[in-house]
Design a protein around this nucleic acid. Structure first.
Lengths: 342, 342
DNA sequence: ATGAAAGCGCTAACAA
DNA sequence: TTGTTAGCGCTTTCAT
């Protein structure tokens, strides 16, 4: 910057003002300085800026590379951050790198706030982070902590899905689980509650899973080895629903003729014509924007109380759910059954 | 740090040496300083460090969030970077954010080198980057540039795949394209060359695609609307192969009985029991490690000539490829055909 | 409107 | 072995 100032024949301070767009410098000076900067191909050194103003204007995002839902969120968060004048730094949450390492790395790079997409599973770590910077969790708030969070009303979504299935006449509705995550636990208990509400306590059945396509496929294989298929499957997310769907289709099971399937998330894959999965939609776009908004509100001191934003899910009815199969004697009629497709 | 030094009763410089593990300070001093640091919960300010030593020890990685192959690479790159004492910063390559913005952001954060997973499509931009920092492209080197690259011998992989298919008796082998990327162009031309080599020039057929599951599905729909299915499909990557596979299976086409399918990448999905895709494997693990190695070699000045590392692909034969269907009169024999499954 | 000067928190010669 | 002293490149009072 010294060079630029020299070339423009002004002081470094003036140049600094110009680059930051502060009022003060005369139009003439501005012109000269920008000119000089262009000639020298000057780029402000952001590290020096950070050091001097003790602000980085950078927010860290912890995500799981390869997770399609996270990808959607990131695509929403980037522009939102830019709107607020913040820059984003991504950190990956991968097996070989524990949560602590990942978050510390982000903080070392002077992130002023953290947005956690893949939830931190250690409450102690979260508390520790929270003591240092604003943190926003996208997803259900871990129990025992008081981070800000942006989440979907999961219970409501599950309830809608179960209502839909029951409305179609299904009774034996099994749940493919999502594993040890908080969000999965919520889905699981909401499933139980909804079944109970419909008087289907005795039909409750949970098959282990971990949100992956593989686990959905495994669950379906399990079901195929049993004498009777259930009426319907409610998966913890779209990926596992798709895994199950693919396995069933290959086994010549008619979906939704024999079994209905509902997912959760509205993964882009679910919209493909050949998948066309009925699912509970989370508004990733909006969640990303809101997460950013909450983080920035904190940073600018506009908010002190805990924020917990809950978005309403939408049941998207596509082609994997349909009427419960009719008893054998009605088979002829059955073939004329109308399927709802959106 | 001043506080720590004061509390330990030493100078700031001494403390600095201790934190950096430099030789010099006496054991007694070290002890006292670490002690004081612990008591004050001191954390070095990496921004100040960067500014002072004019080195960041950070490497930027540009990737596409949600791309499973990139996810594999990242999982390999993180530990490799750590081994060399470097930290990683991730930048996302998403629609709303052009390549320039994304790379500049990474450079602004003082990345000393760039590893590009999603290839830069603008040669000018690449040249510009290259003039500033070491750059490693994971994938084929963009024409007209001389970046370092770590890539798979794509031509060889495609050739193996075609040989395999031809060996099984297939002649009408169509290619689902991967779109405008350099890597896709290579696959396309390698496909043409291999077909020609086998005297199948007249069978060459390329269906447009863009590496997505959707485009594979669309391609399959196209094929289904035609009077005859091809003998086999060679997709530009696993995702599109899986899209095609799913659509065909739903249309009650027997894979590989009626049509064989080969993918490219060996995406984790391809290993699922119900997909079980024959594919050309790229060694993501090794590619990630090597990319890091090349970048670090440059940074430490150990290398000045252009590096172009080419890894050998492996054809992984699973269950989506099989003998060409026999003429109708041999059908009884055909049902006894042995399928190779690995 | 402009410039001088004092940091931001750390590193790296060099001197003691 | 330890302390002194200059920066790194920018921001930010405070005078002019």
């Amino acid at each position: 910057m010294a060079d630029v100032a020299a070339r423009a024949g002004v002081s470094r301070a003036l140049a600094s003002l110009v680059f930051r767009g502060q009022p003060g410098p005369s139009p003439r000076a501005r012109e000269r300085i920008w000119q000089a900067a262009a000639e020298l191909d000057y780029r402000p050194n952001s590290v020096a800026q950070m050091l001097a103003r003790n602000r980085s204007k950078v927010i860290g995002v912890l995500l799981t590379v390869g997770d399609p839902f996270h990808a959607q969120l990131v695509e929403a968060i980037y522009p939102a951050a830019a709107d607020y004048g913040y820059d984003l730094l991504l950190g990956a949450h991968i097996p070989s790198r524990d949560e602590r390492t990942a978050t510390e790395a982000l903080l070392d790079h002077q992130c002023e706030a953290l947005v956690l997409l893949g939830p931190i599973t250690q409450p102690k770590l979260l508390a520790n982070l929270l003591a240092r910077v604003p943190v926003v969790v996208v997803g259900p708030r871990p129990r025992g902590t008081n981070v800000d969070s942006v989440q979907t009303a999961i219970g409501k979504g599950v309830r809608q899905a179960v209502d839909h299935l029951v409305g179609l006449g299904h009774r034996a509705i099994v749940h493919i689980d999502g594993g040890p995550y908080q969000a999965a636990a919520l889905r699981r208990s909401a499933y139980r509650a909804a079944m109970r509400w419909h008087g289907l306590d005795d039909q409750v059945r949970i098959i282990p899973g971990d949100y992956t396509e593989r686990s959905g496929a495994d669950a379906a294989e399990t079901l195929l080895h049993e004498p009777h298929l259930p009426d319907a499957i409610l998966a913890a997310n779209d990926l596992s629903a798709i895994g199950a769907l693919n396995v069933l289709v290959r086994a010549r099971v008619d979906v939704p003729g024999d079994v209905s399937i509902v997912g959760f998330d509205d993964n882009p894959l679910s919209q493909l014509r050949h998948i066309n999965l009925t699912t509970v939609r989370q508004d990733a776009q909006r969640m990303g924007q809101l997460a950013m908004e909450v983080a920035v509100d904190r940073l600018e001191g506009r908010r002190s109380m805990r924020q917990e934003i809950v978005l309403q899910p939408t049941l998207v009815i596509r082609a994997t759910t349909g009427q419960r199969p009719l008893p054998a004697e009605d088979l002829e009629t059955a073939s004329g059954t109308v399927r709802r497709t959106v």
